[in-house]
């Protein structure tokens, strides 16, 4: 039975993560209004299940609920969408990631002048599972093990997703850079 004390304890432990929760939702959903709704829902859910939190990594615990809630929404949208564009985005990863980092020529390294907006634009074109590991690694600074726990997949999967995400992102940026140079010439 929840009471004021439980609520205060929950707020003390979990409310500090609301910025991280919002940013994760934003990366996954790519829509500010959806992100806000999902984080709100996730916090209500988290409080309902607060008794299952036995200490430890409170951020990881909270973000797991956020990402699960966000995936539910993505599933619902996929089901309700006639266009099924999300589905395509999900599965395009395999084919797009034939490119591997090791096969890249040093000459292809894109210029470091890429703006944040250009990079964000490229990130938004990655499949959702790639964006997720990327966010947790690069923005939150999670270890492979922590990402595995938060996303509920094996550590090996985390590593391969991260690697494929980087390869794909590099590819997108290299292409963008080439187009830019072609336009100049």
């Amino acid at each position: 039975m929840a009471n004021k004390k439980d609520r205060q304890r929950f707020e003390r432990l979990m409310l500090v993560h609301h910025d991280a929760a919002y940013n994760l939702a934003l990366w996954l959903l790519r829509d500010a209004a959806d992100a806000e709704d999902i984080v709100q829902t996730a916090y209500m859910k988290a409080f309902d299940h607060f008794s299952s939190f036995h200490g430890g990594n409170s951020a990881g615990w909270m973000l797991t609920i956020v990402r699960n809630t966000a995936y539910n929404l993505l599933q619902t949208k996929k089901r309700n969408s006639n266009l099924v564009n999300f589905d395509e985005a999900l599965h395009s990863g395999d084919e797009l990631c034939q490119f591997s980092f090791g096969s890249m020529n040093p000459e292809d390294t894109y210029s470091a002048m890429m703006t944040g907006a250009q990079i964000m634009d490229a990130i938004e074109r990655l499949p959702v599972e790639f964006r997720e590991v990327f966010f947790l690694r690069e923005i939150e600074g999670y270890s492979y093990q922590e990402i595995a726990e938060t996303t509920q997949v094996p550590k090996g999967t985390v590593m391969s997703r991260l690697s494929r995400a980087r390869a794909q992102l590099q590819k997108l940026l290299v292409e963008k850079n080439r187009r830019k140079q072609a336009n100049v010439l």
Binding site: D19, E36, V39, Q40, I119, E138
Partner: peptide, 21 residues
């Protein structure tokens, strides 16, 4: 090149959640 990518992403950084949240 790999490191630059990583740094660039880190630099994009955080968006603050709206106060209403």
């Amino acid at each position: 090149s790999l490191r630059t990518l990583s740094v660039s992403i880190k630099n994009i950084g955080y968006t603050h959640a709206p106060a209403s949240l």
